[in-house]
Computed example of a mutant assay.
Amino acid sequence: MRRRARALATISVLAVAGLALAWGMSTPHPLTAAELPAHTPDVANGKLLFNAAGCLSCHKPDAALAGSDASLPSGGSPFKTPLGTFYPPNLTPDPATGIGSWTDLDFVNAVQRGISPEGQNLIPAFPYTSYARMKTSDVLDIKAYLDSLPPVVSAEKQAEIPLPWLIRRGVGLWKHIGFDTAQWTPDDKQTADWNLGAYIANGAGHCNECHTPRNALMVFDWNRQFAGGPHPGGEGKVPSLRDLVGRGKYSDAADLASALQNGEMMGYEHLSSGGMGEVQTNLSKLPGNYVQALADYIASLK
């Protein structure tokens, strides 16, 4: 009996220790104010990157609500995933239902660390795994642009997912293997345009989120970067971005840039509808040199 009691006590201690370790490892670790760069916000750059990041595509108002301004990211439109349905929140500067009361630090922690102002881990249906690679100054510019928009009252809807509190703690554990916070760095062997395109694709444009496959733990398989794979939304497949010119999809980088900028109205298939429809719409709002830079980078992928 004593031996059994000691065994049970040992198991209990190990279980408690394991739970304590898991709890500690899953605890969010936000940036501090001292880690933010000194920066004068550039609203125009923020608007450009807002479009490059496709913020409106996810944070658009629910089409079922009459009177909503579809040009403002007031949130509420359902975003379905295999895990459940999310309702991206209001990004306008309404202080009660939007981000009007958020500090710059709140915003950067959400966008680049996946941590809410309430200190909870955000589920990476929000692509902070890509936004973490952006320059923090660019993220602050996006915040400045959002602050310049008219405020809209649009209360946040809770995600329809099972055991959200447990999943958010689990995300904290997943971040140790699936979340790289290192910012993107330019390749000094490449041109300035190529580097600009690489920055857009790997950062604000978050192309990896759909076009780079993941392993069983939902971690990017960087050995097959941009090689395509199952759609993260659970429906169909996402095509490879590699060797688009060599495979005859486009004649050269200029042709790809035209496709990204003009879509199906210029005869390019599958770029103004389906999964790429809203992406192409967002890219069409960028300056021509940005679109060409993105095309130069993508066309270089072999």
Rank of each mutant, 00 (worst) to 15 (best):
R4F: 12
R4M: 01
A7P: 00
I11G: 01
A17S: 11
L19T: 00
A22G: 08
G24K: 07
M25L: 15
S26H: 04
A34M: 02
P37K: 04
A44S: 13
L49V: 14
N51K: 02
C55V: 02
L56K: 07
S57A: 15
H59S: 13
H59A: 09
D62T: 02
L65S: 03
A66Y: 00
D69M: 01
G75H: 06
F79M: 14
F79V: 06
L83A: 14
T92Q: 10
T92R: 07
I99T: 11
I99M: 14
G100I: 03
W102Q: 08
S116C: 09
P117M: 10
P117E: 11
E118R: 04
N121I: 05
I123M: 13
A125P: 00
A132C: 15
S137M: 03
A144C: 13
Y145D: 05
Y145K: 10
V152D: 11
A155I: 01
L163F: 14
L163T: 04
L163S: 09
W165N: 09
R169C: 12
W174P: 01
I177M: 08
F179D: 01
T185A: 15
T185G: 02
D188S: 14
D188E: 11
T191K: 07
A192N: 06
D193P: 01
W194L: 11
W194P: 03
L196R: 11
N202E: 15
N202D: 09
A204D: 08
A204L: 10
H206G: 03
H211I: 12
T212V: 08
P213G: 05
P213D: 04
P213Y: 06
R214F: 02
A216V: 09
L217P: 04
L217M: 14
M218F: 08
M218N: 13
V219P: 07
D221K: 04
N223E: 12
Q225V: 08
G228C: 07
G229N: 11
H231P: 00
G233M: 09
G234W: 05
G234T: 09
E235I: 12
E235L: 11
K237I: 03
D252H: 13
A254S: 14
A254K: 13
A254H: 12
D255A: 15
L256V: 06
Q261K: 15
Y268F: 15
L271S: 03
L271K: 06
S273I: 11
G274S: 12
G274A: 13
G275M: 12
M276T: 04
G277N: 03
E278R: 11
V279E: 12
T281H: 05
S284Q: 05
S284H: 03
S284R: 09
P287M: 06
V291F: 02
L294F: 05
D296N: 14
